[in-house]
Design a protein around this nucleic acid. Structure first.
Length: 566
RNA sequence: UGGCCCAUGGUGUAAUGGUAGCACGACUGACUCUGAAUCAGUUAGUCAUGGUUCGAAUCCAUGUGGGCCAGCCA
């Protein structure tokens, strides 16, 4: 499906650290990264940034690789469905982990052994306090915490209790295993963090083997060490966890010494990125599933018609820094347009048809006209499109009483039909309510192909479709899901849901497309000339009658002049 | 009187003590059988105040502003 990603030419602070590490042979010159999703939701464009970073780095030299590791330490939230979608989405983006597919749950035995090791070293203890009591003992951001009364339990007792936790002798929440570090530490993560909790819950991979599960902090760094990860790249909110990450690496007999680095996650205007909120949109039916074309998920973007290349290009354009920023969605749109402009075949489609009768064109005649498939790609060749007496034009391309800057069709005015003829509007037919329902025109046979032998010019070239030959189908117009630039920054009493764009989806039926489109296959991407880039919906595909999704509009100078919305 | 991190045009970023550059957007214009694309141009920036230095976006100090942290989530 997707080509091999091109190595990034841009550098960033992480790549600079790596270059330095290689020069100094810090990890014997090896670079091993990992992408560690939790299988509790679908991947989104923010994950793409991390994927492109981690897998990208691995492609930029020898002695490198990137692992895919599922961080599946919480069976209450994780499901196989998500594992499958994540695998599919990363592959689609164009990356490959070879045989290096791992699961944190693969390491549960080792992690358990290391927990025992800490207990034996007097660096961990079984806690009897409840979650509430632990919180109360933790202190606050400004005040130190207090030691738990169970903090100095004897090692044999801790060992016994922890074994019994594992054996299922206690209920959920009854006990936890904690590290013994420093209850007065200014970094709250170091105030005797929980290592293991009891969860009588079967796991999507280990089934009912375990009823205790390690917490993220106790699993992540050690998993990195097991896999000999050299550079463990995560987002900024884990910065505060780094001292703990390092503490485990120092206090456990781990096989390697990975280092953690943090970068700013991606934010996009008019978009939310929180998995929790995306899940809410799905569950409450604000969108039609994780792969709804309005979703910022990779599966949604794919269904919308975005290319893997465009997403990768976007990710290199936004860069990698430690500064929290919000990228303009226009940058993402630019990346798709740039890619699609080069590779999407041009076709003609009339979305809101206005019937046009060419009065001096014979009723029984039709002819085939030559059209260029892609002016940006000579290899794409030509095709034939049928022309006849009755056509459809876009409603927006006609105005009965046009303002000065409107170049398109109007009464008495001559325009060009792309690849066909010059036509002149001679009569406007209206219904009882005064709506324009049909146009009567004449054509100039001498302008066949679109050029006037006498050299006369027209100011507009319009797309059109022959009525008798048209493919009649559904087209879905997608727009941004939110009306606010930052839906997360909701004002008093509102939530992100209050900024949902009521016009994010407009379903058009009775669209008239040129007949060549009957052969379109799921996922095919084309440009409807003068309108935008569209792709064949993969989910609701019907042979001979494909449904099209709008990926993105073309730049529209007239819309700007007329003040119309996008 | 908590700790850690961060600050460059509207937006995303580069400049690693030596001419503040690139991209997106916006705006002009050229070209055009897509009011597209393309091309040319315009617009606009170092958070503040001190200090170090021949020279500071870069180093230091203070201030301001922002982010993260008190899950038995990740």
């Amino acid at each position: 499906m997707s080509e091999t990603p091109e190595p990034s030419e841009k550098t960033d602070f992480i790549r600079e650290i790596i270059a330095k590490d290689i020069a100094e042979k810090t990890h014997d010159g090896a670079v091993i990264t990992r992408f560690p999703p939790e299988p509790n939701g679908y991947l989104h464009i923010g994950h793409a940034k991390s994927i492109c970073l981690n897998f990208g780095i691995a492609q930029e030299g020898s002695n490198r690789r990137c692992h895919l590791r599922f961080d599946d330490t919480n069976p209450t939230k994780e499901e196989q469905e998500y594992v499958d979608s994540i695998v599919e989405d990363i592959r689609w983006l164009g990356f490959d982990w070879g045989e290096h597919l791992y699961f944190a749950s693969d390491y549960f035995d080792q992690l358990y052994a290391w927990a025992v090791h800490l207990i034996e070293a007097g660096k961990a203890y079984v806690e009897d306090l409840s979650a509430d009591e632990i919180r109360a003992h933790r202190g606050s951001l400004t005040d130190p915490g207090k030691d738990s009364p169970y903090r100095d339990r004897a090692i044999p007792e801790n060992l016994d209790l922890f074994a019994r936790m594992r054996n299922g002798e206690f209920k959920d929440g009854e006990k936890v295993l904690r590290a013994k570090i420093d209850m007065a530490h200014p970094n709250l993560n170091m105030r005797d963090p929980v290592l293991y909790r009891i969860l009588h819950q079967s796991h999507h991979r280990t089934g009912d083997k375990w009823c205790i599960y390690p917490i993220y902090d106790f699993a992540h760094g050690q998993s990195d060490a097991i896999e000999h990860i050299t550079h463990s790249i995560c987002t900024l909110e884990f910065e505060n966890h780094r001292p703990l990450y390092d503490w485990f690496i120092e206090n456990l007999p781990v096989p390697s010494r990975p280092r953690q680095y943090e970068f700013a996650r991606l934010n996009l205007t008019y978009t939310i990125m929180s998995k929790r909120k995306l899940l809410q949109l799905v569950q409450e039916g604000h969108v039609h599933g994780w792969n709804d074309p309005r979703m910022p998920t990779l599966s949604g973007l794919r269904r919308r018609g975005f290319t893997p290349k465009a997403i990768r290009d976007f990710c290199t354009r936004v860069g990698v820094t430690k500064f929290n920023s919000v990228s303009d969605i226009a940058l993402l749109e630019h990346s798709v347009k740039e890619d699609l402009n080069k590779c999407a075949p041009r076709v003609m489609a009339v979305l809101r048809p206005l019937k046009v009768v060419i009065e001096n064109y014979p009723e029984d005649k039709s002819e085939e006209l030559e059209a260029v498939n892609n002016p940006e790609d000579p290899e794409a060749g030509n095709r034939k499109i049928p022309f006849s007496r009755v056509l459809y034009l876009e409603q927006d391309d006609f105005m009965e009483d046009p303002p000065k800057k409107f170049f398109r069709l109007a009464p008495g005015r001559e325009v060009r039909l792309r690849y066909a003829y010059f036509i002149t509007c001679t009569e406007v037919v209206k219904d009882d309510d005064g709506n324009v329902v049909e146009l009567r025109c004449t054509y100039d046979p001498a302008t066949k192909g679109g050029d006037a032998p006498d050299g006369r010019k027209v100011k507009a070239t319009l797309h059109w479709v022959s009525a008798g030959h048209a493919l009649d189908t559904e087209v879905r117009l997608y727009d941004r899901l939110f009306t606010a630039e930052n839906p997360d920054a909701a004002e008093e009493g509102k939530t992100f849901l209050d900024y949902l764009n009521p016009d994010s989806l407009e379903v058009l039926s009775g669209c008239k497309l040129e007949p060549s489109l009957k052969a379109a296959q799921p996922g095919d991407r084309v440009q409807f000339e003068r309108l935008g880039y569209f792709c064949v919906d993969e989910q609701d595909f019907v042979p001979e009658r494909p449904v099209f999704n709008r990926t993105v509009t073309l730049r529209d100078a007239w819309a700007k002049i007329s003040g119309k919305k996008r």
